[in-house]
Amino acid sequence: MDASDGELLGAWGRGDHVAGEELFERHFESVVRFFQNKIDRDHDDLIQQTFLGCLESRSSFRGDGSFRAFLFGVAHNVLGKHLRRRYREPAGLDFAHVSLAELGDSPSMVIAADRQQQMMLQALRRIPIDHQVALELHYWEAMTAGEIGETLDVPVGTAKTRLRRAKQLLAAELSDLLAGVIGAEPTETRLDTWAAGIRRLVSR
């Protein structure tokens, strides 16, 4: 049986590079995905810092929680540090309220398959960063509210509330974006039709 993520991390900490590389390989793409819709450059550094961060703070990973929650928690901190340094606002940047779109960041590397996905990615960047992180982890990494809570270091209840709120914010942004695309139909119908389209695409 394969070694668990926690065991690999421990082995890497003891100097076992093979274990480290396996752990890296397992989670590399998720980490790339974490940064790609948020930051437009310096991905090399951010990814490296995330894995090094895991290695350095491995003592705080107790092994009972989810490794991915731990990993994304580190990634989230790396992101925060990066944004604060980049926008030179160590204190003033409140990720619960400011969105990446407001910070004026453009995404990189993201290849939207179609107009719908492009709009979705855009809408995600228009909601506050904390909400964006929660939603992306929920959708793309299939993480539970519990895991998201661990990642963002908040109680499960708060994580649930945040997810619910994030969905509302996303829907509002989407209908804003859609308003210009499809003309006269009322908002609910539009979003529903559109959502149905997306569902069909996903289930295919």
């Binding site: 819709n37 990814i47 590397m109 290849i111 959708y139 793309w140 969905k167 609910e188 569902r199 695409l201």
Partner: peptide, 21 residues
């Protein structure tokens, strides 16, 4: 309507992924 549909994760540029890795 208030609940957004579940979006697929966006694709990554394969070459950039290789290079990053």
């Amino acid at each position: 309507a208030a609940e957004a549909p579940s979006p697929r994760p966006p694709a990554l540029a394969p070459l950039e992924l290789d290079r990053l890795r």
